[in-house]
């Protein structure tokens, strides 16, 4: 193991290390902690210049105010309406594409694969004008559905890369044995490969959930009205209304960040496994 495990070094250094970790952590998260403190600070504290001291009272009212006076509830709901169908769609499509590219040998295999990989890296702006136009023409501008369709298509790129590499690492003998038995390709996919893909499906689902929840660019390009605005774009417009009301900005930010944070802590193992795929082999 590198560096040398602290258990093997002199006691004072070991204790020094154990003390240093939480201190560094607090410094690292300082901006976030500051915002968390601000979100429970009453407006009167801020008016009196009490920005960093102990809040005079714990004003959970800031959170109530965010929900009562703004469409925050709708924004959150809209985010779910975009995120969940996208996760299902992108994961489903990429199970199929990943299977096709991992299991079959055909001439254009690598070409198709690298089309997905390269497309996944392009700047969003090169897609913006045509995708907005397409969405307008389909009558889906300013709807959750318009966003969902684009996100599914775009995320299929990354998901295909992920699924294809995952299936490639599975023991191919399983598929060969089934073929010798005369099992059809569809059944091989459904009964043999798909059950083995569960960890990959879980990892991709949490990742895509976070990516889509946090998307801001497409939300502003394809949606206008608050009836369909996801929370990232919603908080942007609220930020304009809440000039210098930092207690509300902070409370709103924390609410908007919550769902992916909860998702991350619940599914941590899958999340990290998804994110670091490829970081170990090569």
């Amino acid at each position: 193991m590198f560096p040398t495990p602290v258990e093997k070094i002199a006691a004072p250094w070991r204790w020094g290390y154990k003390l240093a970790v939480p201190i560094v952590l607090i410094l690292w998260l300082l901006p976030l902690l500051g915002v968390m403190m601000t979100s429970i600070r009453p407006a009167s504290d801020l008016a009196q210049g009490n920005y960093f001291g102990v809040p005079s009272t714990i004003a959970l009212g800031n959170y109530l105010e965010v929900f009562a006076n703004t469409p925050m509830g709708t924004y959150i709901w809209n985010s779910f309406k975009v995120t969940i169908p996208t996760v299902i769609g992108a994961v489903a499509l990429s199970c199929l594409t990943g299977f096709a590219l991992a299991v079959y040998k055909f001439k254009s295999n690598l070409l198709v694969f690298f089309m997905f990989v390269a497309g996944n890296f392009v700047p969003f702006q090169i897609l913006m004008v045509p995708v907005r136009d397409l969405t307008l023409n389909m009558g889906l501008y300013d709807t959750s559905m318009g966003l969902v369709l684009f996100h599914i298509a775009f995320q299929t790129g990354f998901c295909t890369l992920f699924m294809r590499n995952f299936i490639k690492a599975l023991p191919f003998e399983l598929i060969e044995a089934a073929r010798v038995e005369g099992v059809s390709e569809l059944k091989i996919f459904w009964f043999i490969v798909l059950p083995l893909m569960r960890p990959a499906i879980a990892a991709l689902s949490v990742l895509i959930f976070t990516f889509i929840w946090n998307d801001y660019f497409w939300a502003t390009v394809l949606v206008q009205g608050s009836h369909a605005l996801p929370v990232t774009a919603g908080i942007f417009s609220l930020n304009g209304q809440w000039v210098a009301q930092w207690q509300l900005v902070s409370a709103g930010s924390i609410v908007a960040a919550m769902p992916p944070v909860i998702m991350f802590f619940l599914m941590q193992k899958h999340f990290i496994a998804g994110l670091t795929l490829g970081a170990t082999k090569g």
Binding site: L96, V103, F106, G157
Partner: peptide, 24 residues
């Protein structure tokens, strides 16, 4: 089989990602 498995995902990807690059 590979064609059928690829079709839905690749079609979506071409419509929303590959074609727009050329259009832009």
């Amino acid at each position: 089989a590979p064609l059928l498995f690829l079709a839905p995902g690749a079609l979506m990807f071409i419509i929303y990602v590959i074609a727009p690059i050329a259009q832009s």
